[in-house]
Amino acid sequence: MATTTKQPPGPPAGAALAGRSIARIGYGAMQLERHHADPAAGAEVLRRAIELGVNHIDTAHFYGDGFVNGLVRRAVGDADVLVASKVGAAPDPNGTLPLRPAQRPEELRAGVEDNLRSLGVDTIPIVYLRRLEVGPGLAAQGGQVVDIDDQLAEMTAMRDEGKIGAIGLSAVTTDTLRHALPAGIACVQNPYNLLDRRFEDALSLCREHEIGWVPFFPLGSAFPGMAKVAEEPAVREAASRAGVTASQLGLAWLLRHAENVFIIPGTGNTVHLEENMAAGGIELDAVTRATLDAVGAASVSAPVLAPSWPSGTGSD
């Protein structure tokens, strides 16, 4: 049986990401965009996350065109928190979609400068290059299809200049990840969860090279072709038996699946935040673990989704 403590425990710690020992449950800040009319509410979620032991916050300047980064800047202050951001897209508030690709080397540099300014720092500990090779999300087309070596040359130059502490990759194929290894990749963000294990080979490659695996959509998504973990009957049944929520069980599975996994579930309210943090206290017995492993096994060989952005679906 899976078991958990009643109060949110401190997240499991002791694993290294980009050379720093951090808690394995962090916080993804994207959903704080919804607090644009009430910044104080967004800042409260961030402060509560830090109180609960979060010391890894994932953000981006293109989340609300600097709005979310501003919240992170005020909430983190002098706290010892690893802040990770990303480039490869840029805000497009007047466009058909809220974002546009920004893949050219000069756009990557501009994105880093935007993040430095809105976060109020001289160095960003981790910056992910969002390549837009796999879906869901934006697709790179035309002049936005840029050679990975040209992009890595610019990212490496900014690391050498001290603007970036470590380089991450996001939305990449396993072949691209393998090609990029000589550049010194600290972590990878790809869609991955209990029901979506298409990048199991990339996760294995990261384990082999001691690279952090930081999945986005850790509980699924409303994008077509992606399921929501909490709606899977087998997960719901197992969660009911354990006395936890299906979402908590899905997060607990990720933490137990591989030691290099760092999760960054996002939420806009403190209740869900505390539920997510409590997933760190859930232990999976052999039967529950085998049940959950079997649920997602078929997705390991599923086709990789092409980038897409259907109307009414949030970004990441």
Rank of each mutant, 00 (worst) to 15 (best):
T123S: 14
A60H: 09
G70K: 08
T173Q: 06
A102C: 09
R20N: 03
L129M: 11
A183C: 10
K6Y: 15
R207I: 00
A227D: 15
P303V: 04
S221N: 04
R178C: 10
T96L: 14
L52P: 02
I211P: 03
A90N: 12
L46S: 05
A234V: 00
E237R: 14
A89M: 14
L97R: 14
T174C: 14
D65R: 12
I124E: 05
E274H: 01
R256E: 15
L108R: 05
L305W: 07
N190A: 09
V304W: 08
G42A: 04
N276A: 04
K86P: 08
L292F: 04
T245F: 06
E259F: 12
A2D: 10
A294Y: 02
E237S: 14
S240Y: 12
P303K: 06
Y27P: 09
G120R: 11
V188R: 03
Y192N: 09
F223C: 03
I124S: 05
S170C: 09
A90L: 13
P105Y: 01
G26Q: 04
M30P: 11
I282E: 04
A153T: 08
P218A: 02
T4D: 12
V235M: 02
N69P: 13
Q103L: 00
A306M: 11
E232N: 07
V287P: 11
H209G: 12
H35I: 06
D201K: 13
